[in-house]
Structures are given as C-alpha cells and as structure tokens.
C-alpha cells in the first residue's frame, strides 16, 4: 500500500510527516508512521496530514463529452468548478472559469453543432505546471469570428437579440483564448487560466 504515497520525515524537535498520494492508504500510513514517530526519543510527534493529491503526479488531462442539448453545459460547468477548487483557484477565478466554459459549450451546442443532439461537444481540462487549459470542441464546420458587440449601437439601433456577447465574455474572463477552425471539420476554443504561484 505504501507505493501509493510519498512519506517524508524531518527530524527536528518533532517529526513532521507529510502524505502525498491516494487517500485510501492513509489510515495504515498514520498507524505505521505513528509507531515510528513515537520511537524517536519518546517525543510527541506532530503530524501534518494533508489529503491533497499532488496534481503533477496524477492524470493531467480529463475529458468530458456531452450531447448537443442545452442544459448539458451545466455538467461541464460543475466539473470546471471542481477542477478550479482542486487547483485552489480563488473563488472569483472559479466563477470566471464557469462562465467562460458555459459560454464556450453553449456556442458549441447552438452554433457549432446546430443543436443536433447526436453531435458531440468534447471538453478537455489539461493541468500544467502554471496553467489550466480548457478546450471545447464541436463537430461544426466553422462559426466564424463574431464582430465585437457594441452595447451603445445595440441600444440605439434597437437591434433584436444582440449576439457575440458569449465570445466577448470568454475573451474578457480568461487569460488566453484561441479559436481554431478546421474547414469541414470542427471548431475548438482553447482557454487558459494561469495558476497562481
């Protein structure tokens, strides 16, 4: 069971044990190391027990596939929130990520896949050392770059249902955004959130 975890012992006035790895073997580890700790000069051991996995040692890419049905974007949004929490993103950045992911998925469902339920939207979350990259891919043939929306023009011209706000929000909420279209193939939006040091 020990091979699932890394254990380090620092000997000073007391012992510090830090666990990094799967949660399951922790109990046995605590028991084993607890015995070892008590053997050291009879000092009381202080345990620094963390259940946080070391993300750099785990699977770094997670993928989700949803049908092109409005509402399923929320599944991805919930997943994004969970990833954000694991990465200790500030609450506000998690909200930004949720909004950007929701907009990218909604665009993929509505404009990329034209609401065809059987067409998939594939979303990948890749954790790198200093950033989280989210890629949202549809099966559409290209939606083109929306013209940046102007609120003033929309209000004064009384245009119906102004469009382009989704991409506007993605660009303004994420640290980096890239759009790629393969003619006759698919569209992908890649978004990056930089991780705090």
């Amino acid at each position: 069971m020990l091979h699932h975890a890394q254990v380090s012992l620092n000997t000073s006035t007391y012992d510090v044990v830090r666990f990094v790895g799967d949660a399951e073997p922790y109990d046995d580890l605590i028991d084993n190391c607890g015995s070892a700790g008590r053997m050291r000069d009879g000092n009381q051991a202080t345990w620094e027990h963390t259940e946080e996995p070391n993300l750099m040692e785990l699977e770094k890419t997670f993928e989700l596939h949803i049908p092109s049905v409005l509402g399923f974007e929320k599944v991805v949004v919930d997943f994004a929130a969970s990833v954000g929490k694991i990465l200790h993103l500030p609450a506000e950045r998690i909200e930004d990520l949720k909004t950007a992911v929701a907009e990218a998925c909604t665009n993929a469902i509505e404009h990329g896949n034209k609401m065809k339920p059987s067409a998939r939207v594939s979303v990948s979350f890749t954790i790198e050392e200093s950033k989280l990259q989210v890629a949202v891919q549809d099966e559409g043939s290209g939606i083109g770059q929306a013209t940046p929306p102007s609120l003033e023009q929309t209000i004064s011209r009384k245009k119906e249902r102004p469009r382009g706000w989704g991409i506007f929000l993605i660009k303004n909420l994420m640290d980096e955004v890239e759009f790629e279209t393969r003619p006759g193939g698919w569209n992908v939006v890649r978004m990056v959130v930089r991780l705090q040091e």
Partner: peptide, 20 residues
C-alpha cells in the same frame, strides 16, 4: 441565478426598450 450571454442579450433588449 445562472445568467448567460443569451440572458444578457434579453436584458439588453429590455434596457433598450426602456429608453424609448
């Protein structure tokens, strides 16, 4: 409330009409 860009567009429309 969950508000997306589609909802924002509706609100913009309402604001636009309220000006008139």
């Amino acid at each position: 409330c969950y508000i997306n860009s589609g909802g924002i567009a509706i609100l913009i429309g309402i604001v636009s009409e309220s000006q008139d």
